[in-house]
Design a protein around this nucleic acid. Structure first.
Lengths: 219, 219
DNA sequence: CATCAAATTCTGTCTTTGCAGACATATCCG
DNA sequence: CGGATATGTCTGCAAAGACAGAATTTGATG
């Protein structure tokens, strides 16, 4: 098989924890889009497709260092036509309020979820950025700020602190210098992506396709 | 301060766990590059700069869903002039053999660490890919294979499974379609990066800089 | 300013993951 | 073929992280 042992293990452990972990699957089965009308807006139970997407997105999150609930909430908001309040989210994903509250705060820090208010409802409602390029742009900007920038800083400090008389450090310096250059190049990309609009980013990415073409790298 | 509460918490918790977790810091302090000569090769204790880099790289790993030890081993190999054997790595990072063994296997799966043999020594030795562009290329290719490809597959399946008569699903489909398009564009990028040489990738990235310039996005 | 809904923070529990040490297997040499 | 050395796998414990529920704070409204 073209699959590593580590992956097999991951699959198995994912399966093992399914019943306990993935509460979505434990939610009452949905035959079709049954609507439950609450005070002031209707709340649809999750369709099987929605469930599947949310679960997958949660899993993806964990692979990239994002906690599962946070990613799931993001997925839910992303496919929700209307803004949802905390209560709605708790109900849809069967998670505790506190968990939802914390995850929403973090999603707002990432700037991919915004708080909105609905007329005649004092509860906070939340909606996701819907444009995928915009979303990517925001995430890239934030990751740069949190991870790339500090890394460049650390690398540069390491380089200037290195003991030039020590042979081991001399080689280390060479390597770190390369790495720092690379990250700086990457950082400037992230930066630029963070500044241009989604429309232009999309154009730039498609243009990039062509650049590859010119370099003679076809499909 | 320009820092979120979550970040403050992260910093605190990192500090709290330092003594227990980061064995590197507990290793005997290194005054200068003291050389310890073993059977057939000399093994330098880590310099402060090396320690710092390894710790930071380990931390970076965790942020991107890579386990800390694995990232630390990678960092160590990356700045090591000569290939190291498992024993050397255990000693340098103060981690168990089993841990080193598993991490090395995974690093080889990622194709960023290669096993080599030294003349007259039957132990396996390991060295990291040293070219940063090559490293990036390999990591990108692997992440695509493991995460992007399955995501595109899932999204497309979700779209084809969606119930077109259901209003909720109709909206979901729109969103997922956008997302799938985006990931496919991304996948093709990753793919192309995976195929071109490090040299050309470097050229392409620098060229990309210019593309941004042409689009009027300066520093 | 009292009351109540909504939201947040705190605290303890449970799950998951990472990891060390023990055990098992493979490889080389006398 | 036996012993030694090297590597790989398994098991159980411990740390970290995620999470639920309780307690607290916020703030809106009569």
């Amino acid at each position: 098989t073209g699959r590593t042992k580590a992956e097999d293990r991951a699959v198995l452990s994912a399966r093992r924890r399914m019943p306990a972990k993935c509460k979505l699957l434990l939610a009452p089965p949905v035959t079709s889009g049954i609507s439950v009308v609450t005070e002031n807006h209707e709340m649809n139970a999750l369709t099987p497709v929605a469930q599947r997407f949310i679960l997958h997105w949660g899993e993806m999150g964990t692979r990239w260092g994002i906690n599962r609930t946070m990613a799931q909430i993001h997925a839910l908001l992303f496919i929700s036509e209307k803004p949802l309040n905390a209560e709605d989210i708790c109900a849809a994903l069967t998670v505790a309020r506190s968990n939802v509250s914390n995850s929403l705060r973090e999603l707002q820090n990432w700037k991919i979820v915004k708080m909105v208010h609905l007329h005649g409802d004092r509860r906070d409602h939340f909606e996701s950025v819907k444009d995928v390029f915009e979303m990517f742009r925001l995430i890239a900007a934030e990751r740069k700020r949190r991870e790339i920038d500090p890394t460049v800083l650390t690398l540069r400090e390491c380089i200037s602190d290195a003991d030039r008389k020590n042979a081991a450090d001399a080689y280390t310096m060479e390597r770190l210098d390369d790495l720092a250059d690379f990250f700086e190049l990457g950082a400037s990309w992230f930066d630029k992506m963070g500044r241009i609009s989604a429309k232009r980013l999309q154009k730039a990415m498609k243009l990039g396709e062509k650049v590859f073409g010119l370099l003679g790298i076809g499909d």
